[in-house]
Nucleic acid binder design. Structure first.
Lengths: 151, 151
DNA sequence: CAAAATTTGTTTACAAAGAAACAATCTCCA
DNA sequence: TGGAGATTGTTTCTTTGTAAACAAATTTTG
């Protein structure tokens, strides 16, 4: 009873083990872990890929809109975009109708690269829910989409 | 068609909007946002609360076991525990049978505090899934538990 | 129209978290 | 027994992301 805990599975989490915030954090750590196992060599980080993917499908999108959609803060977006620009993957353009804004576009080389990266990214994504059945995985996705207000 | 995107809901995410990693990140950001709205005044961060909660239910647990269960890396755990110690919330003890290890216990003052914090934390947790029905919320929790290998 | 308020992106300073190297201790086995 | 290897926690350094202050451009409003 009063024996000090020695092993992980003896730990009593009490109600914490049904707290959404806690479960979500564990889930995300697991996903990140697998991401670097499976695709770490392609030297693209998850955040970078999501930015590039959205740029592939929304050429000329404004930095602010991109950030709002991906929930990336302005200060951080500035660094991300500069890094991608330094790698020659994106170009920036100040539009005439609002000279505060910046429009971002993939370079031609990046278009090919991102299409290819999409192949292994979504292959990896499909493999992430392996301990769930296909139906459970669909259900989880649908619930998460509703939870975050997408769809 | 080729009109540049101007507003958030025009953005085309393509398959990204069903990627578990992406949805999970959005979900966690939403949860954190709400955490600081609702309970930010209690100057406890989510990570700190989870550590204190587990200590409440597992007095004298070893730092390594605590870290493994909560998926907190050793280096980070050291800082967390020291911070809690500086706030007078936990005490550290080197057990005789393994002088590398550290056993952590809540101070008496902290016990009361954490029990109280649990009240508002789990109230907040219940309110987090507001745009889901009770059944959907249970389902989401169960799927996440299976996904991360709990239960 | 002109002043005030807002939006957009950048900079600077900082906090959270991880990686790698390290020291101390313990375990295992020849 | 004693030495090789593993475990535990700490330190140091780096990365990732946020907060706050700022400058420039735009919008609002009196």
């Amino acid at each position: 009873m009063d024996m000090p805990i020695r092993t992980t599975d003896e730990v009593n989490l009490d109600r914490l083990d049904t707290a959404l915030g806690f479960l979500m954090r564990l889930a995300q750590l697991k996903i990140y872990e697998r991401f670097f196992e499976e695709v770490g060599d392609h030297n693209l980080k998850p955040g970078e890929f999501s930015v590039l993917w959205v740029l592939l499908h929304n050429p000329g999108i404004r930095q602010s809109v991109l950030g709002q959609r991906l929930m990336i803060k302005r200060a951080h977006m500035t660094k991300l975009i500069r890094s991608l620009e330094d790698q020659g993957l994106v170009s920036r353009r100040i539009p005439d109708d609002d000279r505060r804004a910046v429009e971002i576009t993939l370079t031609p080389a990046a278009v090919t690269m991102v299409e290819q990266a999409g192949d292994w990214f979504f292959t990896y994504e499909d493999s992430v829910g392996e301990n769930l059945s296909a139906a459970e995985r669909r259900q989880l996705t649908a619930l998460l989409r509703k939870f975050v207000g997408l769809g």
